[in-house]
Nucleic acid binder design. Structure first.
Lengths: 202, 202
DNA sequence: GGTTGGTTTAACCATTTGGTTAATGCAAAA
DNA sequence: TTTTGCATTAACCAAATGGTTAAACCAACC
């Protein structure tokens, strides 16, 4: 029993709950399955977290933070628009490839348990809007409403993850090819967005 | 008891199951709730459709067809690329505004019950690819892989529907404004895609 | 060694859930 | 009018589910 290798029961529960909730969703997840996954007695779940709902809320708000783009620093830096866009898309698609269950879990939960959203922090929407307006004023890009651009960027990154089963079926794509396509999209999405919003006469 | 107004029990069940499954998802839906919605005895559900899974499969495959873009005719017509794109995006966003639960329902189901996908028909991926290649050859648009363009187009239309709760929270948007933004997007998405793939020197 | 207080467990509980059944309703055929 | 066969219902059932409880465990402290 190594000192540093020890993982507390609470951590074990969190890890297990993450796995099961992400894979099965709230309604589909079973407390017993979480207990099995954590290799502890089911009563421990309630001992540490009260109820299924409270446990879910813990997992949701933690995961929500991962999903909301961490753009604040990038926006405040003095780097070019192109750079911000490129880094953002790369980072985001990488994160999604590492967490393929995350988008569906969050979207599903937000729709069916909207009360969980109230516990989450805000995305710096105003900051993003201001930054974008500056880029427009500087004639770096064509005018576009911040919420539209953000929806476009995130949608282009996230949708292929959400639509994976349909996508693979419709185009008859194997797993390795699918991963390859996601990687390709880092370049593709950057290019697509850049062309869509750049100034024509340059 | 009007002759033409009569709705068969089977139809009543389908309507009710659609409503409940779309709103609650498979795991969240309750057979009793479907029966209540249809105002019939719960045993009728099993009498007509066997099991929850069989009923779900009926609803899923019907709804899947609505979601898969009906592009075949458009692709075979001799109209311009611009026209196909414009009509496609308009039609699709309109359909989504009328069926806001549809995307999450399909995506959720495909992920958690992938076996349902095997019952569905195929999307004419090859036809779309061939048509797009022709547009590229005719120098109507820049080269782009068919699956990327399709993911982009659908993603740009669908993602705002999926992300609605988060979107509204992050940007503090009321329901009427949200609807307005979706309508705006018909124009916006067309423009965005068109600029992204048009030939530069014209 | 004994007490204390947090941790863990097996057994239990009430309710919900998908599904079944046996009896009844009922319209059309005979 | 009686029979036939599908349609419908109330009552029921076994399994699953989230949650509880009382007892046991166990390391730290006295």
């Amino acid at each position: 029993m190594e000192i540093e290798e020890h993982i507390s029961t609470e951590e074990r529960i969190i890890k297990a709950a993450e796995k099961i909730f992400l894979r099965e969703g709230y309604a589909g997840a079973r407390m017993q399955e979480i207990a099995n996954e954590a290799k502890i007695n089911k009563a421990m779940l309630h001992y540490y977290f009260g109820s299924k709902k409270e446990l879910m809320e813990k997992i949701f708000s933690a995961k929500f933070k991962e999903f909301i783009p961490k753009v604040t620093e990038a926006l405040q830096s003095e780097t070019t628009f192109e750079n911000v866009l490129r880094v953002y898309i790369d980072t985001y698609i990488d994160m999604l490839m590492r967490n393929p269950y995350l988008p569906l879990f969050l979207i599903d939960t937000m729709h069916r348990n909207p009360e969980f959203l109230s516990f989450t922090q805000n995305f710096p929407g105003k900051l993003f809007a201001a930054w974008l307006q500056k880029q427009v004023d500087l004639k770096k890009i064509r005018p576009i409403k911040p919420h539209h651009l953000l929806l476009n960027m995130i949608g282009l990154c996230v949708f292929p993850i959400l639509a994976k089963p349909m996508f693979q079926k419709v185009f008859q794509i194997e797993e390795t090819d699918y991963q390859q396509i996601l990687t390709e999209r880092k370049e593709m999405v950057y290019d697509f967005v850049m062309r869509a919003i750049k100034i024509d006469d340059e």
